[in-house]
Amino acid sequence: MNQQARLLRIYTDEAAYVGDRKVYEVVASRARDAGLAGVTVLEALIGFGRSAHVHRRHVLESDRAVVVEIVDEDPRLRSFATQLADVPEIGLITLEAVEIITPTADADHNGGAKR
């Protein structure tokens, strides 16, 4: 069974803080508190945005680009995104359509076709 959903992507970096907590930790915690379906935080090897500042891991400090991904229903993600307005330095937020694929027990490992 396949179903339509949305993917909310939030681009930030390890050096971005809200008080004494990292921005990506605040976002993940708020997403859990909001009862969203799930959150994944990914560290990028290298990245830059509008400022052209290159984010990467350095020997003495961490300044990697970070992406927070959240999959859920469109209205829930839009509502959640508006609740992040008070988070400084959050970065770019995108929303895109995704299809959730649920594998079936009778599908093989070569593309899912039955024999």
Rank of each mutant, 00 (worst) to 15 (best):
Q3I: 15
A5T: 15
A5V: 07
R6W: 05
R9V: 02
I10K: 08
Y11R: 04
T12V: 00
D13A: 15
G19E: 02
V23F: 01
V26T: 14
V27N: 03
R32W: 12
D33T: 13
G35A: 06
G35T: 14
L36R: 02
L36N: 07
G38I: 09
V39K: 01
V39F: 00
V39G: 00
L42Q: 03
E43Q: 15
L45M: 14
I46N: 10
G49K: 10
G49Y: 06
R50Q: 10
H53Y: 04
H55M: 03
H55F: 01
H55K: 03
H58Q: 11
V59G: 12
E61D: 13
R64G: 05
V66G: 04
V66C: 08
V66L: 03
V68N: 03
V68C: 08
E69S: 12
E69V: 00
I70Y: 03
P75V: 10
P75I: 11
R76W: 13
L77N: 14
R78S: 01
R78F: 09
F80K: 06
T82Q: 15
L84G: 08
A85H: 07
A85N: 10
A85V: 14
V87F: 07
P88G: 08
E89W: 03
L92S: 04
E99L: 08
E99S: 11
I101G: 01
P103L: 15
A105D: 10
D106W: 05
D108P: 06
D108F: 09
G111L: 05
G112M: 05
A113H: 15
A113I: 05
R115H: 09
R115Y: 05
